[in-house]
Amino acid sequence: MDSGLICVSLFTSEGVGIWIASILTLAIYSFLYRDNPIYRFSESLLIGISVGFLLVTTFDTTLLPKAFEPVGKGIIGISESGGINSFAIFVWILIPVVLGFLMFTRFVPRYAWMSRVALALYIGFGAGASIPANMQSYILRQIDATIRPFLNIDSFWSLVNALIVLVGLISTLFYFFFSKEQKGAFGKITRLGTFYLMIFFGATFGYTVMARISLLIGRLTFLMKDWLGLIS
């Protein structure tokens, strides 16, 4: 480790970026002390830049390739070749584009109800499409993963392991059973489910905190190495 403070040069294109990133990092961290104008400035800057970035990327990656260009090509296709096929393709392109633009009717209170059509379709399709995926990943695969180990019991401890998972899954499922009050024998099973849940929360808390600390270390390394040059 170097003992001297050797800040990165401000007079290079890379150096300017590092200086700005470092100062903004410190500005955001200043919130740890209290709310202050420097934090408010960096907060507004972050929000403004992210919204601007969202606008540009939405135009470049969604509106242009998925709306404007296909509609333009559709119009050219109809005018050049004509025919029912070109028109049918054009209509298929136009339907989602029109639905998307219906969202803008929210700006005109009189026609704002039209945006509900687009919202209803969007939410209905999204929720419906997620049903098979949820059935597959949250139910069938979980059942498979719980009972498959029983096929390969080759020792006492592998049986114990499979039973721990089995008991945990069943007691936790009972905890999320809402049609019966958690009393008596049923309550004891759900209490066991609560213990399993708490073990899970403790494990995920520790694991995620470790990940967050590694993020902090990354930021501190950036400040101390790339900016201040304290670490070689």
Binding site: I143, T146, F150, L151, I170, L173, F176, F177
Partner: peptide, 15 residues
């Protein structure tokens, strides 16, 4: 959930 629990218990025995 009740059906899932029955299937899991049955599956463990059958396994």
């Amino acid at each position: 959930k009740v059906i899932i629990i029955i299937l899991i218990l049955f599956g463990a025995v059958v396994g």
